[in-house]
Amino acid sequence: MTRIDKNATVAVSVRGLVKHYGATKALDGVDLEVREGTVMGVLGPNGAGKTTLVRILSTLITPDSGQASVAGYDVVRQPRQTRRVIGLTGQYASVDEKLSGWENLYMIGRLLDLPRKEARSRADALLERFSLTEAAKRPANTYSGGMRRRLDLAASMIGRPEVLFLDEPTTGLDPHTRNEVWDEVKAMVGDGVTVLLTTQYMEEAEQLASELTVVDHGKVIAGGAIDELKAKVGGRTLRVRPTDPLQLRPLADILDKQGITGLAATTVDSESGTVLVPILSDEQLTAVVGTVTARGITLSSISTELPSLDEVFLSLTGHRASAPQDAVPTEPEEAAV
């Protein structure tokens, strides 16, 4: 079958993609490229157009204009071919709630033209791999959130996809379950699958993706390797807590005056009694500790954090993310159209 993109090293190619819903520009000219075997993180707030992008790439909707190809197939002109090589895990677990885990996987195996015997053994193997064997016979509506998400991932893997789309794979999950899902995704990547995942969390992108595309209002506002972007937005944030809360302000002033912070100035978080210091390197971290020691300030705790989505946006665009990051995480990203 003809693949329009002969360049085998590019798994997903998107050029000038536009999708409008009335006056809402869900996508307003998006370009991106995902190399084979890599993980691309698409980072953005609610309503940035992430879900629309995934829905176009997985052939669920058609763009108004622009071009998109997946594994060399044009998603608009070769939807059936595209569907043969992709796996999709949506924001909502796209499994049949009334069927058992096993029946869900068996059904999808049959829909993917596996012979009965193979569909059976594939269902068994994937349940095993995603630690769902014990729950195999129970209806999916009795599963916990994490189990459902794992079943969803298993369902996406039945067809041995070349490209996997994960739309906010951990939204609405608790931290423990989120780590479980991350481990599963890492294992899939280890198998050589190309992954495009959308997320609202810098931490998730850091954990899973090698490259990042930051989107806002349907446009790409930054892109590149995670490390480059992190450097651009000020790397990490150092959180320092002096034992004496009265020293919060003086400590922040000293650090600012010494100029050992990253791109931005320090901020005082008086609620938690900490000073936030943006840093770019381990040398800066050491310098901060050295300065504190030289001034005779005692610290009760010190930790580093990744910048939040808001901080990333602030440093990339000068404005905050268009929707608050902590909006109810189970809400749909865009109006389900």
Binding site: T59, L60, R83, L88, Q91, A93, S94, V95, L111, L112
Partner: peptide, 9 residues
């Protein structure tokens, strides 16, 4: 979500 699954197969 199951219809999305069917329509992406």
């Amino acid at each position: 979500g199951v219809m999305d699954r069917f329509r992406s197969l």
